[in-house]
Nucleic acid binder design. Structure first.
Lengths: 156, 156
DNA sequence: GTTAATCGGAGTGAATCGTTCCGATTACGA
DNA sequence: TCGTAATCGGAACGATTCACTCCGATTAAC
């Protein structure tokens, strides 16, 4: 029950892209430095995100990319699906018919579809814009104030 | 964004156990035949489910196992966690501190925790008892109204 | 005490994932 | 107009995890 690391990195990368180079153009090298990701990994992510239409890339010297939509219109579901493909926790959870032998008589499959839809909604409910807003760690209420200040400082 | 196949099999297995041998004792061989799973796989699942305390196994001739709790008290979250371990879509999504380099300044992590909690709730909302109830395929539009009601019911 | 059937853990093979490298494309400068 | 440099894009490699299978330990029944 874990999403791929690439998808996780992609979210961090897109978050940095939205923060660091909001409207202006930036490249994979800058974001790799910004996020601490290896440059080849950042390049691979940029490729996938570009193929999915989340960013628009410009090749050549002085090239780079920029978000194809405002941060408020890009959700975690978009990013995860761009990197990992459709969100399906099981092969039966997808909308299309599976090749399972017990196709018609399966009691579990409809429930998987509901769960799958709930998960996708949870991911679709978080936008890149909302990633900028700081959320206090519910596990440590006493540190919420300090974390807020740290969050503001590191975001610059 | 996919759960392990073992966890999927485990849900089918537990569903069959709840249906086929509700209160009485049954063994891995019967459930393997019932569900179509290979016997070694069913045995492995039984081991894990037993270790997690979801079923109580009795060894020796004439042995077998039975559910340690009523079907209404066993959720998909219990089964998935028994097989796959804690539900964490990212290494940062867990409650404990991660070894991530950008620990304190990460803007994404709190959101992952919220998403993670939502996913776990979705899995915890479906019990083995509710798996017995039939749910129409949401692919058929004429059943859409039924789906909504079912979704509300399973969320409790 | 013996037998037989079951659970439990260790070992092997395969598939996927993550990483890295190299080529294709394009804009800038001479 | 040509050469150079910097970037994206796809392909190949290695590592890790997963799924599967086999064999031994345990225990009740005869």
């Amino acid at each position: 029950m874990r999403m791929s690391s690439l998808a996780d990195y992609a979210v961090v990368l897109m978050s940095a892209a939205a923060r660091h180079c909001g409207g202006m153009r930036c490249n994979a090298r800058v974001l790799a430095t910004e996020t601490g990701l290896p440059l080849p990994t950042a390049q691979k992510l940029v490729s996938k995100l570009s193929a999915a239409g989340l960013i628009e890339s410009v090749r050549g010297a002085g090239g780079g990319f920029r978000l194809s939509r405002p941060p408020a219109a890009i959700t975690l579901a978009d990013i995860v699906e761009a990197v990992d493909g459709p969100i399906e926790i099981t092969v039966c959870a997808g909308e299309h018919a599976s090749d399972c032998a017990m196709e018609g008589s399966c009691h579990v499959r409809p429930h998987w579809q509901i769960v799958n839809r709930t998960i996708r909604s949870a991911l679709a409910g978080v936008t890149l814009a909302s990633l900028g807003q700081h959320i206090p760690d519910p596990k440590r209420p006493e540190h919420a104030l300090d974390l807020k200040k740290v969050g503001e400082r590191t975001s610059t």
